[in-house]
Amino acid sequence: MSETTKGGNVILRNVRVPDTVEPGETFTAEADVDVGGVFVNPLDPDHCNNASGAGAGYTLSVEFEGPDGTVKEAGPTCQLMTEVGENRSTYSKDFTAPMYDEQATVSARVVMRDSGKSTDEMSDTAEVSRDAPTEPENPDYTDGGSTGDNVNWNPPDPDDSDGPQFPDFGIGDKLEGVGLLVVVLIGVYLLVEMTEAGVEGASPL
């Protein structure tokens, strides 16, 4: 498929963008333009010659429209004919992929500014990647905070006979010490009570 103007002598062959782009990525759109024929009327408003004056061609531009509606123009330039076949030139412009859309479409057309002629548009579409973030290799999260305490947040294991695991904030040893002290105090209290009861119950001599 192609689009033409100037009696078929100027041909927009194709428009290309990458197959896939990342959100916000800068990518390049390209358009191939062929100029054919063997003669350009010197009175044609789009007629042009190369620097030496030999050879003839058309003054043309390629107008690109990006995903957000931005229009960018490559050219104008004098694209010459060849003695045999067609002379191809590639035009390009950079665009930015959308952050949230699923596709990035760029269209292009060849424009002859002096005569006002143009080809119809051609377009190509890139898919905007929406890959899910990769899961970390180690699912355990260790938080080394400013307090210096490392908290290992392990989810409870339903098959663990010891029951679910909870964050260890380093107070287990302190609780064990408090419990032991309470037991000792209770023992001392009971010993004192028993001693006093024995004294009061003793018979006088």
Score class of each variant (00 low, 15 high):
E3H: 02
G7K: 03
V10R: 08
V10F: 05
I11M: 13
I11W: 15
I11P: 00
R13N: 13
V15R: 07
V15H: 10
R16W: 14
V17Q: 08
P18Q: 06
T20A: 05
G24N: 11
E25C: 01
T26V: 14
F27S: 03
T28V: 14
E30H: 06
V33H: 05
V33Q: 01
V35P: 05
V35R: 01
V35E: 11
G36V: 13
G37Q: 08
V40P: 00
D44K: 04
D46C: 07
H47C: 03
N49G: 04
N49S: 09
N50S: 12
A51G: 01
A54M: 13
A54I: 15
A54T: 15
A54L: 15
G55V: 15
A56K: 12
A56F: 06
Y58R: 02
T59Q: 10
F64L: 09
F64P: 02
G66F: 15
K72S: 08
E73I: 15
E73N: 09
A74D: 05
A74K: 04
G75H: 06
C78Q: 06
T82G: 06
T82K: 11
E83M: 12
V84Y: 08
G85M: 11
G85P: 06
N87T: 08
T90Y: 03
Y91P: 02
M99C: 00
M99T: 12
D101S: 08
E102F: 05
E102H: 10
Q103H: 05
Q103G: 00
T105E: 07
M112C: 02
M112V: 02
G116A: 07
S118T: 10
T119K: 05
T119I: 03
M122N: 03
D124C: 04
A126F: 09
E127K: 09
S129M: 14
R130I: 02
D131F: 13
E135S: 09
E135F: 11
P136C: 08
D140A: 04
D143H: 12
D143P: 01
G144Q: 09
G144D: 10
G145D: 15
G145E: 14
G145P: 01
S146G: 05
S146D: 13
N150C: 04
V151W: 10
W153H: 08
W153S: 01
W153L: 08
N154L: 12
D159E: 11
D160C: 09
S161E: 14
S161L: 15
G163S: 07
P164H: 09
G170M: 06
G170S: 14
I171E: 04
L175S: 00
L175E: 01
L180S: 07
L180V: 11
V182A: 08
V182Y: 04
I186D: 00
V188W: 08
Y189W: 10
L191C: 04
L191Q: 07
T195G: 05
T195N: 03
A197D: 03
A197S: 00
A197K: 06
G198E: 03
G198L: 05
G198A: 04
V199Q: 01
V199K: 03
E200A: 06
G201F: 11
A202N: 07
A202T: 08
S203A: 12
S203P: 14
L205Y: 11
